[in-house]
Amino acid sequence: MTETIDQHQEGKRDVTFRVFRFNPQVDSKPYFDDYTISAERGITVLRSLNYIKEHVDATLSFRAFCQAGICGSCGMRVNGISKLACTSQVWEELDKCREPGIIKVEPLRSLPMIKDLIVDMDPLVDKMKHYSNWIDSTMPLAEMGKKEFLVSEEEFHRYDKATDCILCASCVSECSILRANKEYVSPAVLLKSYRMNVDSRDSIHDVRLAELVKDHGVWDCTHCYRCQESCVKSIPIMEAIHAIREDALECRGPKDTSGAKHAEAFMEDIEKKGKLVEATLPIRTNGMVWTLRNLLPMAVKMIVKRRTPPPPPLVKSAKGIKIFRVMFREMTEHVKQDHQKTHKK
């Protein structure tokens, strides 16, 4: 019999961490440093970074706190995907490397850089404030603490998953809209807004919604699903975004904002022709004045290049449009019924 019984025969694998470095005090631009260490099975990316900081290069800077996947501090991009370093296995990441044996580690995107893997979270906090990401309770101040609201388990389940969010900002970093427009509300803040809006204890649903439908708000999302795919807590963020949109159409009507009008125009075209009438889409979404002011130069260029979409009379209905219309109406009827069932306040 052997003296030491260790059933976890831990082999080791050499791995190189290619880490994004930037210190604004001395560096004019970012660069990468390579650190090669040997990592056994079960070691996380964060533990590796800690090891590097303690034994190889103490200047390497990153945030970490709970190290157990609940505080959200160590959001960063590992092999190009935004995630928590503390719950990412090195051996699993080794299978995803673009260059064999080299794990690339970079800061989150779409937030201002501070140093190395640390980004500024203030813009996210500012947006939480801007979109009133809190409950403004219907309970009068004098009554606080005296009695409970009665809340059904069913209502709790409506926002249960959304309250898993730890604000790690992985979705913020992955969002394709934010990369183009830093003003955009961002997936995390939409999720939180949704969570507040479906809570029966809250009194400012309408105020919050009015802000969400403005420019840079809920209508700017392009349904790329990157937020949902990268969510470290597997929260269905897109469902929340859809729910806010449906809520907006229901509460504020289809003529409310350009986003709502755009959605309405889509529906109209699909029902009528089975495809889009692109030539008039901007006018129906943003109005004639906006279109002339903003799109006229592009329209001229399109004419020159002969790339203009066909005028409405020339857009023929899609093949099988009659059957499609029946199906379409049936579908919208179903959606309406489902909606009444699940979203009644």
């Binding site: 809190w134 009554e143 809340v151 709790f156 926002y159 249960d160």
Partner: peptide, 9 residues
């Protein structure tokens, strides 16, 4: 509870 903590029910 009154200010929004989501308790199980």
């Amino acid at each position: 509870e009154n200010i929004g903590t989501p308790w199980s029910r």
